[in-house]
């Protein structure tokens, strides 16, 4: 699912730090905005726009971080509003709801681990490409 690949050039120290920060940004936001899925997206989005004119390596990793956040947003939002409707409306806790929350936890934890691993590797200047997301990133991000 995650592979270390050779980037088209060897990124410098400063680039590696910025690229790594794009992943850390989504982690910090994840901790701060745990119950509010939109917070994570906003934080990554702000970082993305801040580095839009950065080097290719930085832009590429900002885009991969942003796309991963974007893709989990609908699933997390659905779970969030489902929970809200249970607390504040006549909706009741069902087996499907509990199963959905566990599914969310599994995928969010997987993404969390992948993000930490990628942040550490990118900081060392290693180019880490995620399955599906790397191909999607290549579509949006050109050298």
């Amino acid at each position: 699912m995650i592979s270390s690949e050779q980037f088209i050039y060897q990124p410098g120290e400063h680039e590696a730090e910025k690229a790594s920060n794009s992943y850390l940004m989504s982690l910090i936001a994840l901790i701060a905005g745990l119950p509010f899925p939109i917070v994570n997206l906003f934080a990554t989005l702000i970082f993305y726009f801040g580095n839009r004119k950065g080097t290719y390596f930085v832009r590429w990793h900002c885009t991969q971080a942003l796309l991963s956040q974007l893709s989990v947003l609908p699933f997390n939002s659905f779970g969030f509003w489902w929970t809200i409707s249970i607390i504040f409306s006549s909706e009741t806790i069902t087996n499907n709801y509990i199963a959905y929350i566990f599914t969310l936890i599994i995928f969010n934890v997987a993404e969390f681990i992948a993000t930490i691993y990628t942040a550490i590797s990118t900081r060392k200047g290693t180019h880490v490409a995620w399955w599906f997301y790397s191909d999607l990133t290549n579509l949006f991000c050109r050298p």
């Binding site: 069902t94 087996n95 499907n96 509990i98 959905y100 599994i106 995928f107 599906f132 191909d135």
Partner: peptide, 25 residues
């Protein structure tokens, strides 16, 4: 990319379906 997207979405729904078979209640 489309194929991979379908696989990811299917994987999420499969996990959800499999977990919903357990009697969490």
């Amino acid at each position: 990319i489309l194929f991979q997207a379908v696989i990811i979405i299917s994987l999420i729904f499969t996990v959800w379906f499999a977990l919903s078979r357990i009697d969490w209640m």
